[in-house]
């Protein structure tokens, strides 16, 4: 773990517009401190998140991916997150089956009122990814000129 201490991971964070993105906003206006390693990407609903996005993030060099949306029952589109839950269950299992280290891919339900949970989760996700070091999973390397 010590070798990863200076490593600052890049984490692609997909937030649902209606809940977690609002939670992030609230954490911001509440001046809650959290690590700057996430790159927030706003999506309409976790149900919009194609597994392709997750692979694309890893391909482009993300060290971790975090997906967060409304709690079950709170979806702005009523059930988008419930479909997403099944999809994520299968996806996470598949990716870990082919060698994605547990701890690179995270999911959470965070409402727009849960600024503290948002802060806590950023810390948790960042620490987990940091401990694993840089990701090689599906990473596309085109090489550089020597």
């Amino acid at each position: 773990m010590s070798s990863n201490e200076s490593f600052e991971p890049r984490i692609a964070a997909f937030f649902c517009n209606w809940c977690t993105y609002g939670g992030a906003d609230l954490a911001g206006v509440s001046r809650l401190q959290y690590p700057p390693n996430i790159r927030a990407i706003r999506i309409p609903c976790t149900g919009r998140l194609s597994p392709t996005f997750v692979l694309q993030a890893f391909r482009q060099g993300a060290d971790g991916v975090w997906i967060s949306g409304c709690h079950p029952g709170d979806c702005h589109y009523i059930e988008g997150n419930l479909y997403a839950r099944r999809r994520f269950t299968v996806l996470k299992s598949l990716l870990e089956y082919v060698g994605l280290e547990p701890g690179r891919l995270h999911f959470s339900w965070i409402s727009s009122a849960e600024a503290t949970k948002f802060q806590q989760t950023v810390i948790e996700v960042t620490e987990a990814v940091k401990a694993l070091g840089p990701s090689k999973f599906l990473r596309k390397e085109i090489g550089m000129v020597a």
């Binding site: 060099g61 596309k140 390397e141 085109i142 090489g143 550089m144 000129v145």
Partner: peptide
């Protein structure tokens, strides 16, 4: 053409 940051091939 594939690009990554300022480099490409």
């Amino acid at each position: 053409d594939e690009t990554q940051g300022p480099a490409g091939r």
